[in-house]
């Protein structure tokens, strides 16, 4: 991967409201290449709104979002080309095979047939799913469907991977496999990850944390930084204190 001086994601002074209800209030942060950043917040904190703005499903009037140096509002195509997303809701076509689903996505990102085949093989093999490529998605369990969605999000080699509570509804081994895999991805390939969750056990020692509550960033930094700022002994307590104090 060629070095890029700009952060994989930079959010500056971002605000958003649904009518009079403020969902995000002057949110600013950055995610660097190779960094796994956990966006931690209770339900309704504004995580999904933030993701919808980064993916340009909504447009913000206040603030700025840049993906690998490209402004989402001014250069949407360039910005979105650097972005891979795993949405909270499953988005695979259940009646199509794994391959057909992935080819559909590859074509949306302009990959040629040959390139798509190579990339699909690479990504599915990394997750031990290549043998199941000809199966219909309906036949896969929830954990395997999520793996396919992660493979899909990576097909076009994005610099930034967004995951919106990707492990919700999965059993413990599937959850662990996905959490491990994404963390490995950060350290091995240098991709930047922004992972939204409210599950404390998905956080690793060397992750960066952003605690979002009521649409505002309550704390940001490494795990030790957050513990120190909150005066807590573990992330669970810190999260509880940070979100309770602000409530």
């Amino acid at each position: 991967m060629t070095p890029n001086p700009s952060p994989a994601l930079s959010v500056t002074g971002l605000s958003y409201a649904y009518g009079k209800k403020k969902a995000l209030d002057r949110v600013s942060f950055a995610v660097q290449p190779g960094e796994c950043t956990i966006l931690l917040g209770p339900n309704g904190a504004g995580k999904t709104t933030l993701f919808s703005l980064i993916t340009r499903l909504y447009a913000s009037r206040e603030g700025r979002i840049q993906i690998a140096g490209h402004d989402v509002r001014k250069e949407p195509s360039r910005a979105l080309a650097q972005l891979g997303v795993v949405f909270q809701q499953p988005t695979l076509d259940l009646d199509l095979t794994v391959m057909q689903n992935l080819h559909y996505h590859a074509s949306l990102h302009g990959l040629s047939r040959r390139r798509a085949d190579a990339r699909i093989q690479e990504e599915l093999e990394r997750q031990g799913m290549y043998e199941r490529r000809k199966e219909k998605v309906r036949q896969l369990n929830g954990g395997h469907r999520r793996r396919v969605e992660i493979a899909r999000a990576l097909l076009h080699n994005p610099r930034l991977l967004l995951l919106d509570e990707p492990t919700v509804g999965l059993d413990v081994p599937s959850r662990k496999a996905i959490v491990d895999y994404v963390h490995r991805l950060c350290s091995d390939s240098g991709i930047a990850v922004l992972w939204a969750t409210h599950l404390i056990d998905e956080i690793y020692e060397d992750d960066r944390l952003i605690v979002l509550h009521r649409g505002a960033v309550q704390a940001e930094g490494s795990v030790p930084d957050i513990l120190k700022a909150a005066g807590a002994e573990n992330v669970g307590d810190a999260f509880h204190m940070l979100t309770r104090e602000a409530a």
Binding site: T55, R56, L57, P76, S77, R78, A79, L80, A81, L83, V85, F87, Q88, Q89, P90, T91, L92, D93, H105, L108, H109, G110, R152
Partner: peptide, 14 residues
């Protein structure tokens, strides 16, 4: 509602 429209809309084309 199922979300697959989102994957279409976030691809880098107008």
């Amino acid at each position: 509602e199922m979300g697959s429209m989102k994957t279409l809309l976030v691809c880098p084309l107008p």
